[in-house]
Design a binder for these strands. Structure first.
Lengths: 218, 218
DNA sequence: AAATTGTTTTAGGTATACCAAAAATAATAA
DNA sequence: TTATTATTTTTGGTATACCTAAAACAATTT
Protein backbone atom coordinates (compact mmCIF):
# COMPACT_ATOMS: atom_id res chain seq x y z
CA UNK A 1 0.00 0.00 0.00
CA UNK A 2 1.26 3.47 -0.85
CA UNK A 3 2.19 5.61 2.14
CA UNK A 4 -0.21 8.38 1.16
CA UNK A 5 -3.09 5.92 0.90
CA UNK A 6 -2.32 4.51 4.34
CA UNK A 7 -2.13 8.01 5.79
CA UNK A 8 -5.44 9.09 4.32
CA UNK A 9 -7.25 6.05 5.67
CA UNK A 10 -5.75 6.27 9.16
CA UNK A 11 -6.31 9.99 9.49
CA UNK A 12 -9.92 9.62 8.39
CA UNK A 13 -10.57 6.70 10.72
CA UNK A 14 -9.09 8.74 13.55
CA UNK A 15 -11.25 11.77 12.76
CA UNK A 16 -14.43 9.69 12.55
CA UNK A 17 -13.82 7.69 15.69
CA UNK A 18 -13.95 10.63 18.11
CA UNK A 19 -10.50 10.19 19.68
CA UNK A 20 -10.52 6.53 18.90
CA UNK A 21 -13.47 5.81 21.20
CA UNK A 22 -15.98 4.64 18.61
CA UNK A 23 -15.97 2.01 15.90
CA UNK A 24 -16.06 3.40 12.38
CA UNK A 25 -18.33 2.00 9.67
CA UNK A 26 -17.50 1.63 6.01
CA UNK A 27 -20.22 3.96 4.78
CA UNK A 28 -18.87 7.00 6.59
CA UNK A 29 -15.34 6.13 5.62
CA UNK A 30 -16.44 5.80 2.03
CA UNK A 31 -18.03 9.27 2.19
CA UNK A 32 -15.09 11.03 3.80
CA UNK A 33 -12.48 9.38 1.63
CA UNK A 34 -14.47 9.92 -1.54
CA UNK A 35 -14.17 6.23 -2.41
CA UNK A 36 -16.76 3.55 -3.17
CA UNK A 37 -17.62 1.14 -0.32
CA UNK A 38 -16.08 -1.77 -2.20
CA UNK A 39 -12.76 0.07 -2.30
CA UNK A 40 -12.92 0.79 1.41
CA UNK A 41 -13.48 -2.87 2.27
CA UNK A 42 -10.38 -3.71 0.26
CA UNK A 43 -8.33 -0.96 1.89
CA UNK A 44 -9.33 -1.93 5.39
CA UNK A 45 -8.34 -5.51 4.83
CA UNK A 46 -4.89 -4.39 3.78
CA UNK A 47 -4.56 -2.06 6.76
CA UNK A 48 -5.59 -4.97 8.97
CA UNK A 49 -2.81 -7.09 7.49
CA UNK A 50 -0.40 -4.21 8.15
CA UNK A 51 -1.67 -4.21 11.75
CA UNK A 52 -2.71 -0.58 11.60
CA UNK A 53 -6.39 -1.32 12.26
CA UNK A 54 -8.53 -4.02 13.73
CA UNK A 55 -11.11 -4.77 11.12
CA UNK A 56 -13.70 -7.48 11.36
CA UNK A 57 -16.07 -7.73 8.49
CA UNK A 58 -19.51 -6.22 8.71
CA UNK A 59 -18.70 -5.11 12.23
CA UNK A 60 -16.53 -2.01 12.26
CA UNK A 61 -12.98 -0.72 12.36
CA UNK A 62 -10.75 0.63 15.09
CA UNK A 63 -7.13 1.81 15.05
CA UNK A 64 -4.42 -0.30 16.67
CA UNK A 65 -1.70 1.37 18.75
CA UNK A 66 0.58 1.65 15.72
CA UNK A 67 -2.29 2.93 13.56
CA UNK A 68 -3.24 5.54 16.12
CA UNK A 69 0.36 6.67 16.41
CA UNK A 70 0.64 7.16 12.68
CA UNK A 71 -2.78 8.84 12.53
CA UNK A 72 -1.81 11.27 15.26
CA UNK A 73 1.36 12.20 13.44
CA UNK A 74 -0.60 13.03 10.29
CA UNK A 75 -3.11 15.00 12.32
CA UNK A 76 -0.23 16.87 13.90
CA UNK A 77 1.32 17.69 10.53
CA UNK A 78 -2.03 18.82 9.16
CA UNK A 79 -2.83 21.09 12.06
CA UNK A 80 0.66 22.55 12.37
CA UNK A 81 0.63 23.42 8.66
CA UNK A 82 -2.84 24.97 8.95
CA UNK A 83 -1.60 27.10 11.80
CA UNK A 84 1.59 28.07 10.01
CA UNK A 85 -0.29 29.00 6.86
CA UNK A 86 -2.63 31.30 8.76
CA UNK A 87 -0.28 32.75 11.34
CA UNK A 88 2.93 33.07 9.34
CA UNK A 89 1.91 33.14 5.71
CA UNK A 90 -1.25 35.21 5.81
CA UNK A 91 -3.81 32.67 4.61
CA UNK A 92 -7.43 32.76 5.78
CA UNK A 93 -8.82 29.94 7.93
CA UNK A 94 -11.10 29.03 5.05
CA UNK A 95 -8.19 28.51 2.65
CA UNK A 96 -5.80 26.35 4.61
CA UNK A 97 -7.52 22.98 4.78
CA UNK A 98 -6.99 22.10 1.13
CA UNK A 99 -3.33 23.02 1.14
CA UNK A 100 -2.73 21.18 4.40
CA UNK A 101 -4.27 18.07 2.86
CA UNK A 102 -1.25 18.00 0.59
CA UNK A 103 1.37 19.28 2.99
CA UNK A 104 0.45 16.74 5.68
CA UNK A 105 2.10 13.98 3.66
CA UNK A 106 5.55 15.53 3.67
CA UNK A 107 7.47 13.37 6.07
CA UNK A 108 10.18 15.26 7.86
CA UNK A 109 9.90 15.55 11.60
CA UNK A 110 12.54 18.23 11.81
CA UNK A 111 10.48 20.41 9.49
CA UNK A 112 7.22 20.06 11.44
CA UNK A 113 8.93 20.55 14.77
CA UNK A 114 10.66 23.65 13.44
CA UNK A 115 7.35 25.11 12.25
CA UNK A 116 5.75 24.23 15.60
CA UNK A 117 8.58 25.91 17.44
CA UNK A 118 8.31 29.08 15.34
CA UNK A 119 4.62 29.14 16.23
CA UNK A 120 5.42 28.65 19.92
CA UNK A 121 4.21 25.05 19.98
CA UNK A 122 0.54 25.88 19.67
CA UNK A 123 -2.12 23.64 21.22
CA UNK A 124 -5.00 24.63 18.96
CA UNK A 125 -5.18 25.10 15.21
CA UNK A 126 -7.18 27.85 13.43
CA UNK A 127 -10.34 25.73 13.54
CA UNK A 128 -10.09 25.13 17.26
CA UNK A 129 -8.85 21.55 16.93
CA UNK A 130 -6.19 20.43 19.39
CA UNK A 131 -2.72 19.77 17.93
CA UNK A 132 -0.97 16.58 19.09
CA UNK A 133 2.55 17.17 20.40
CA UNK A 134 5.63 15.52 18.89
CA UNK A 135 4.98 12.41 20.99
CA UNK A 136 1.35 12.19 19.86
CA UNK A 137 -0.16 13.46 23.08
CA UNK A 138 -3.35 15.38 22.40
CA UNK A 139 -5.67 17.39 24.64
CA UNK A 140 -9.15 16.07 24.92
CA UNK A 141 -11.73 18.67 25.64
CA UNK A 142 -15.22 18.36 27.01
CA UNK A 143 -16.61 20.82 24.55
CA UNK A 144 -20.05 20.19 23.08
CA UNK A 145 -21.72 20.80 19.77
CA UNK A 146 -23.86 23.89 19.33
CA UNK A 147 -26.68 21.45 18.57
CA UNK A 148 -26.43 20.11 22.13
CA UNK A 149 -26.75 23.44 23.93
CA UNK A 150 -29.64 24.61 26.10
CA UNK A 151 -31.82 27.71 25.78
CA UNK A 152 -30.79 30.81 27.78
CA UNK A 153 -27.30 29.53 28.48
CA UNK A 154 -24.09 31.31 27.45
CA UNK A 155 -21.33 29.69 25.42
CA UNK A 156 -18.06 30.47 23.75
CA UNK A 157 -17.26 29.23 20.25
CA UNK A 158 -14.29 26.87 20.47
CA UNK A 159 -14.05 25.22 17.08
CA UNK A 160 -15.64 23.73 13.99
CA UNK A 161 -15.85 20.21 12.63
CA UNK A 162 -16.37 21.16 9.01
CA UNK A 163 -13.37 22.77 7.33
CA UNK A 164 -14.88 23.57 3.98
CA UNK A 165 -14.30 27.02 2.63
CA UNK A 166 -18.02 27.66 2.11
CA UNK A 167 -18.92 26.86 5.70
CA UNK A 168 -16.11 28.92 7.17
CA UNK A 169 -16.95 31.91 5.00
CA UNK A 170 -20.56 31.64 6.16
CA UNK A 171 -19.45 31.69 9.79
CA UNK A 172 -17.16 34.62 9.24
CA UNK A 173 -19.92 36.61 7.62
CA UNK A 174 -21.92 36.25 10.82
CA UNK A 175 -18.86 36.89 13.02
CA UNK A 176 -19.34 33.45 14.49
CA UNK A 177 -15.62 32.91 14.81
CA UNK A 178 -13.52 31.16 17.42
CA UNK A 179 -13.66 32.98 20.73
CA UNK A 180 -17.05 34.59 20.04
CA UNK A 181 -19.52 34.61 22.94
CA UNK A 182 -23.07 33.55 22.24
CA UNK A 183 -26.37 33.25 24.04
CA UNK A 184 -28.98 30.73 23.01
CA UNK A 185 -32.37 32.40 22.53
CA UNK A 186 -34.63 29.69 21.18
CA UNK A 187 -34.47 26.26 19.64
CA UNK A 188 -37.19 25.70 17.05
CA UNK A 189 -39.12 22.49 17.60
CA UNK A 190 -39.96 22.38 13.94
CA UNK A 191 -36.49 22.03 12.40
CA UNK A 192 -34.14 22.24 15.40
CA UNK A 193 -32.68 25.46 14.12
CA UNK A 194 -31.17 27.67 16.79
CA UNK A 195 -31.73 31.38 17.31
CA UNK A 196 -28.80 32.89 19.15
CA UNK A 197 -27.33 36.27 19.82
CA UNK A 198 -23.75 36.99 18.96
CA UNK A 199 -22.05 40.40 18.92
CA UNK A 200 -25.39 41.98 19.77
CA UNK A 201 -27.02 40.60 16.64
CA UNK A 202 -29.53 37.78 16.48
CA UNK A 203 -29.05 35.04 13.99
CA UNK A 204 -30.57 31.74 13.07
CA UNK A 205 -28.39 28.70 12.64
CA UNK A 206 -29.66 25.57 10.92
CA UNK A 207 -29.50 22.24 12.71
CA UNK A 208 -26.98 21.07 10.14
CA UNK A 209 -24.65 24.00 10.79
CA UNK A 210 -25.10 23.64 14.56
CA UNK A 211 -23.73 20.11 14.27
CA UNK A 212 -20.47 21.56 13.02
CA UNK A 213 -19.86 24.22 15.64
CA UNK A 214 -18.09 23.36 18.87
CA UNK A 215 -18.75 25.44 22.00
CA UNK A 216 -17.89 25.57 25.67
CA UNK A 217 -20.30 26.53 28.45
CA UNK A 218 -19.38 29.88 30.02
CA UNK B 1 -0.75 9.75 -16.00
CA UNK B 2 -0.50 10.89 -12.40
CA UNK B 3 0.40 14.55 -11.96
CA UNK B 4 3.42 13.75 -9.81
CA UNK B 5 4.76 11.37 -12.45
CA UNK B 6 4.36 13.98 -15.16
CA UNK B 7 6.09 16.57 -13.02
CA UNK B 8 9.05 14.34 -12.24
CA UNK B 9 9.61 13.52 -15.89
CA UNK B 10 9.32 17.10 -17.12
CA UNK B 11 11.53 18.53 -14.41
CA UNK B 12 14.19 15.92 -15.10
CA UNK B 13 14.05 16.45 -18.85
CA UNK B 14 14.41 20.17 -18.25
CA UNK B 15 17.40 19.72 -15.95
CA UNK B 16 19.16 17.39 -18.38
CA UNK B 17 18.57 19.46 -21.48
CA UNK B 18 20.59 22.51 -20.37
CA UNK B 19 17.84 25.10 -20.64
CA UNK B 20 16.04 23.08 -23.22
CA UNK B 21 18.84 23.40 -25.77
CA UNK B 22 19.83 19.74 -26.04
CA UNK B 23 17.98 16.56 -26.77
CA UNK B 24 17.76 14.18 -23.85
CA UNK B 25 18.43 10.46 -24.16
CA UNK B 26 16.61 7.68 -22.35
CA UNK B 27 19.65 6.39 -20.55
CA UNK B 28 20.29 9.58 -18.65
CA UNK B 29 16.62 9.99 -17.93
CA UNK B 30 16.51 6.46 -16.63
CA UNK B 31 19.44 7.21 -14.32
CA UNK B 32 18.09 10.45 -12.95
CA UNK B 33 14.56 9.20 -12.49
CA UNK B 34 15.70 5.96 -10.91
CA UNK B 35 13.59 3.97 -13.38
CA UNK B 36 14.46 1.23 -15.84
CA UNK B 37 14.88 2.30 -19.51
CA UNK B 38 11.81 0.33 -20.54
CA UNK B 39 9.73 2.34 -18.09
CA UNK B 40 11.11 5.58 -19.46
CA UNK B 41 10.21 4.65 -23.03
CA UNK B 42 6.65 4.04 -21.87
CA UNK B 43 6.50 7.30 -19.93
CA UNK B 44 7.84 9.35 -22.81
CA UNK B 45 5.27 7.97 -25.18
CA UNK B 46 2.52 9.04 -22.80
CA UNK B 47 4.03 12.50 -22.37
CA UNK B 48 4.20 12.76 -26.14
CA UNK B 49 0.49 11.95 -26.37
CA UNK B 50 -0.15 14.62 -23.74
CA UNK B 51 1.86 17.03 -25.93
CA UNK B 52 4.31 17.83 -23.17
CA UNK B 53 7.30 16.50 -25.09
CA UNK B 54 8.36 15.73 -28.61
CA UNK B 55 9.61 12.19 -28.55
CA UNK B 56 10.70 10.20 -31.55
CA UNK B 57 11.89 6.73 -30.87
CA UNK B 58 15.59 5.99 -30.66
CA UNK B 59 16.28 9.64 -31.37
CA UNK B 60 15.76 11.82 -28.31
CA UNK B 61 13.29 13.93 -26.38
CA UNK B 62 12.65 17.65 -26.10
CA UNK B 63 10.05 19.64 -24.16
CA UNK B 64 7.21 21.36 -26.01
CA UNK B 65 6.13 24.85 -25.00
CA UNK B 66 3.52 23.48 -22.61
CA UNK B 67 5.98 20.95 -21.23
CA UNK B 68 8.61 23.61 -20.67
CA UNK B 69 6.10 25.83 -18.94
CA UNK B 70 5.12 23.10 -16.54
CA UNK B 71 8.75 22.11 -16.00
CA UNK B 72 9.70 25.69 -15.17
CA UNK B 73 6.92 25.93 -12.63
CA UNK B 74 8.17 22.79 -10.84
CA UNK B 75 11.71 24.09 -10.95
CA UNK B 76 10.47 27.35 -9.47
CA UNK B 77 8.65 25.58 -6.66
CA UNK B 78 11.64 23.41 -5.91
CA UNK B 79 14.10 26.27 -5.77
CA UNK B 80 11.82 28.59 -3.80
CA UNK B 81 11.28 25.87 -1.20
CA UNK B 82 15.01 25.17 -1.00
CA UNK B 83 15.65 28.83 -0.41
CA UNK B 84 12.85 29.13 2.14
CA UNK B 85 14.08 26.07 4.03
CA UNK B 86 17.60 27.45 4.30
CA UNK B 87 16.89 31.13 4.78
CA UNK B 88 13.75 31.04 6.92
CA UNK B 89 13.70 27.64 8.57
CA UNK B 90 17.36 27.09 9.37
CA UNK B 91 18.12 24.04 7.24
CA UNK B 92 21.58 23.44 5.76
CA UNK B 93 22.10 23.53 1.98
CA UNK B 94 22.91 19.84 2.12
CA UNK B 95 19.54 18.96 3.70
CA UNK B 96 17.04 20.81 1.57
CA UNK B 97 17.08 18.95 -1.73
CA UNK B 98 15.28 15.88 -0.44
CA UNK B 99 12.55 17.84 1.29
CA UNK B 100 12.06 20.09 -1.72
CA UNK B 101 11.61 16.99 -3.88
CA UNK B 102 8.39 16.43 -1.97
CA UNK B 103 7.34 20.02 -1.48
CA UNK B 104 7.70 20.87 -5.16
CA UNK B 105 4.54 18.90 -5.94
CA UNK B 106 2.26 21.01 -3.77
CA UNK B 107 0.30 23.00 -6.27
CA UNK B 108 -0.72 26.38 -4.96
CA UNK B 109 0.62 29.43 -6.71
CA UNK B 110 -0.40 31.76 -3.93
CA UNK B 111 1.72 29.78 -1.50
CA UNK B 112 4.85 29.78 -3.65
CA UNK B 113 4.50 33.45 -4.51
CA UNK B 114 4.03 34.27 -0.84
CA UNK B 115 7.20 32.39 0.09
CA UNK B 116 9.06 34.10 -2.75
CA UNK B 117 7.85 37.48 -1.59
CA UNK B 118 8.93 36.84 2.01
CA UNK B 119 12.36 35.95 0.62
CA UNK B 120 12.43 39.14 -1.47
CA UNK B 121 11.86 37.31 -4.76
CA UNK B 122 15.31 35.75 -4.89
CA UNK B 123 16.99 35.01 -8.22
CA UNK B 124 19.33 32.27 -7.02
CA UNK B 125 18.72 29.30 -4.75
CA UNK B 126 21.19 28.00 -2.12
CA UNK B 127 22.99 25.90 -4.75
CA UNK B 128 23.46 28.84 -7.08
CA UNK B 129 20.74 27.78 -9.49
CA UNK B 130 18.59 30.53 -10.97
CA UNK B 131 14.95 30.63 -9.84
CA UNK B 132 12.33 31.15 -12.58
CA UNK B 133 9.90 33.98 -11.85
CA UNK B 134 6.13 33.51 -11.61
CA UNK B 135 5.87 33.74 -15.39
CA UNK B 136 8.58 31.16 -15.96
CA UNK B 137 11.28 33.59 -16.96
CA UNK B 138 14.70 32.38 -15.88
CA UNK B 139 18.15 33.92 -16.02
CA UNK B 140 20.64 32.14 -18.16
CA UNK B 141 24.18 32.56 -17.07
CA UNK B 142 27.39 32.04 -18.96
CA UNK B 143 29.01 30.33 -16.06
CA UNK B 144 31.27 27.36 -16.76
CA UNK B 145 32.12 24.13 -15.02
CA UNK B 146 35.22 23.96 -12.86
CA UNK B 147 36.33 21.19 -15.23
CA UNK B 148 36.42 23.72 -18.09
CA UNK B 149 38.68 26.27 -16.38
CA UNK B 150 42.24 27.17 -17.35
CA UNK B 151 45.40 27.08 -15.27
CA UNK B 152 46.46 30.29 -13.49
CA UNK B 153 43.06 31.96 -13.91
CA UNK B 154 40.87 33.18 -11.07
CA UNK B 155 37.27 32.18 -10.58
CA UNK B 156 34.39 32.56 -8.20
CA UNK B 157 32.22 29.59 -7.21
CA UNK B 158 28.68 30.22 -8.41
CA UNK B 159 26.85 26.95 -7.96
CA UNK B 160 26.74 23.17 -8.01
CA UNK B 161 25.00 20.68 -10.24
CA UNK B 162 24.93 17.83 -7.75
CA UNK B 163 22.67 18.38 -4.77
CA UNK B 164 23.44 15.26 -2.80
CA UNK B 165 24.14 15.69 0.86
CA UNK B 166 27.47 13.86 0.64
CA UNK B 167 28.81 16.08 -2.12
CA UNK B 168 27.71 19.29 -0.43
CA UNK B 169 29.21 18.25 2.89
CA UNK B 170 32.47 17.50 1.11
CA UNK B 171 32.49 20.97 -0.43
CA UNK B 172 31.70 22.61 2.85
CA UNK B 173 34.54 20.79 4.56
CA UNK B 174 36.92 22.39 2.06
CA UNK B 175 35.17 25.79 2.28
CA UNK B 176 34.40 25.51 -1.40
CA UNK B 177 31.07 27.21 -0.99
CA UNK B 178 29.17 29.65 -3.15
CA UNK B 179 30.98 32.96 -3.41
CA UNK B 180 34.41 31.47 -2.68
CA UNK B 181 37.29 32.75 -4.82
CA UNK B 182 39.67 30.21 -6.30
CA UNK B 183 42.81 30.12 -8.37
CA UNK B 184 43.65 27.19 -10.61
CA UNK B 185 47.15 25.91 -9.93
CA UNK B 186 47.50 22.78 -12.05
CA UNK B 187 45.41 20.35 -14.00
CA UNK B 188 46.81 16.83 -13.88
CA UNK B 189 47.13 15.23 -17.30
CA UNK B 190 46.85 11.84 -15.73
CA UNK B 191 43.33 11.99 -14.29
CA UNK B 192 42.20 15.57 -15.01
CA UNK B 193 42.07 16.35 -11.34
CA UNK B 194 42.50 20.02 -10.49
CA UNK B 195 44.79 21.55 -7.92
CA UNK B 196 43.47 24.91 -6.82
CA UNK B 197 43.90 27.35 -4.02
CA UNK B 198 40.94 28.50 -2.00
CA UNK B 199 41.03 30.48 1.23
CA UNK B 200 44.82 30.26 1.17
CA UNK B 201 44.76 26.47 1.22
CA UNK B 202 45.57 24.20 -1.68
CA UNK B 203 43.29 21.37 -2.51
CA UNK B 204 42.85 18.73 -5.12
CA UNK B 205 39.50 18.23 -6.77
CA UNK B 206 38.72 15.11 -8.77
CA UNK B 207 37.54 15.44 -12.36
CA UNK B 208 34.19 14.03 -11.30
CA UNK B 209 33.72 16.67 -8.60
CA UNK B 210 34.92 19.42 -10.97
CA UNK B 211 32.08 18.51 -13.32
CA UNK B 212 29.62 19.43 -10.59
CA UNK B 213 30.99 22.83 -9.60
CA UNK B 214 29.95 25.95 -11.49
CA UNK B 215 32.26 28.98 -11.58
CA UNK B 216 32.54 32.41 -13.12
CA UNK B 217 35.75 33.95 -14.44
CA UNK B 218 36.91 36.86 -12.26
C1' DA C 1 31.87 -3.76 -44.04
C1' DA C 2 31.53 -6.68 -40.24
C1' DA C 3 31.68 -7.18 -35.44
C1' DT C 4 31.22 -5.57 -30.99
C1' DT C 5 29.19 -2.67 -27.62
C1' DG C 6 25.78 0.32 -25.92
C1' DT C 7 21.06 2.08 -26.06
C1' DT C 8 16.28 1.75 -26.87
C1' DT C 9 12.18 -0.70 -27.66
C1' DT C 10 8.95 -4.69 -27.42
C1' DA C 11 6.59 -8.19 -25.21
C1' DG C 12 4.83 -10.05 -21.36
C1' DG C 13 4.11 -9.69 -16.35
C1' DT C 14 3.28 -7.74 -11.28
C1' DA C 15 1.15 -4.71 -7.65
C1' DT C 16 -1.71 -0.91 -6.34
C1' DA C 17 -5.74 1.67 -6.35
C1' DC C 18 -9.65 2.25 -8.01
C1' DC C 19 -14.54 0.94 -10.13
C1' DA C 20 -19.61 -1.34 -11.13
C1' DA C 21 -22.84 -4.87 -10.41
C1' DA C 22 -24.43 -8.57 -7.84
C1' DA C 23 -24.62 -11.24 -3.63
C1' DA C 24 -24.57 -11.52 1.27
C1' DT C 25 -25.34 -9.70 5.62
C1' DA C 26 -27.29 -6.68 9.19
C1' DA C 27 -30.68 -3.49 10.80
C1' DT C 28 -35.27 -1.79 10.83
C1' DA C 29 -40.16 -1.74 10.11
C1' DA C 30 -44.46 -4.04 9.50
C1' DT D 1 -41.25 -13.12 12.39
C1' DT D 2 -41.11 -11.76 7.96
C1' DA D 3 -40.41 -7.96 4.80
C1' DT D 4 -38.00 -4.15 3.50
C1' DT D 5 -34.13 -1.27 3.45
C1' DA D 6 -29.43 -0.18 4.24
C1' DT D 7 -24.78 -1.61 4.52
C1' DT D 8 -21.03 -4.48 3.44
C1' DT D 9 -18.66 -7.83 0.77
C1' DT D 10 -17.61 -10.54 -3.33
C1' DT D 11 -16.58 -10.94 -8.01
C1' DG D 12 -14.69 -9.50 -12.01
C1' DG D 13 -12.66 -5.63 -14.46
C1' DT D 14 -9.80 -1.08 -15.62
C1' DA D 15 -5.69 2.11 -15.60
C1' DT D 16 -1.23 3.42 -13.90
C1' DA D 17 3.37 2.67 -12.87
C1' DC D 18 6.55 -0.16 -12.47
C1' DC D 19 9.55 -4.54 -13.74
C1' DT D 20 12.60 -8.46 -16.53
C1' DA D 21 14.26 -10.57 -20.52
C1' DA D 22 14.72 -10.58 -25.24
C1' DA D 23 14.79 -8.21 -29.63
C1' DA D 24 15.86 -4.26 -32.45
C1' DC D 25 18.50 -0.51 -33.43
C1' DA D 26 22.52 2.80 -33.34
C1' DA D 27 27.19 3.91 -32.64
C1' DT D 28 31.90 2.50 -32.50
C1' DT D 29 35.72 -0.23 -33.26
C1' DT D 30 38.33 -3.43 -35.85
Amino acid sequence: MRQETIENYLKTIYNLSANNTMLVGNQKLSDKLGLRPATVTEGLRKLHDLKHVIYEKSYGTRLTASGAKLALSIVRRHRIWETYLTKELGFGWDEVHEIAEELEHIKNDKLINKLASILGNPIYDPHGDPIPDAKGKILKSNFIKLSETKVKNNYKVMGVTDHSSSFLKYLEKHRLIIGAFINIKTIEDFDNSIILSCQKKELSISAKAAECIIVEAV
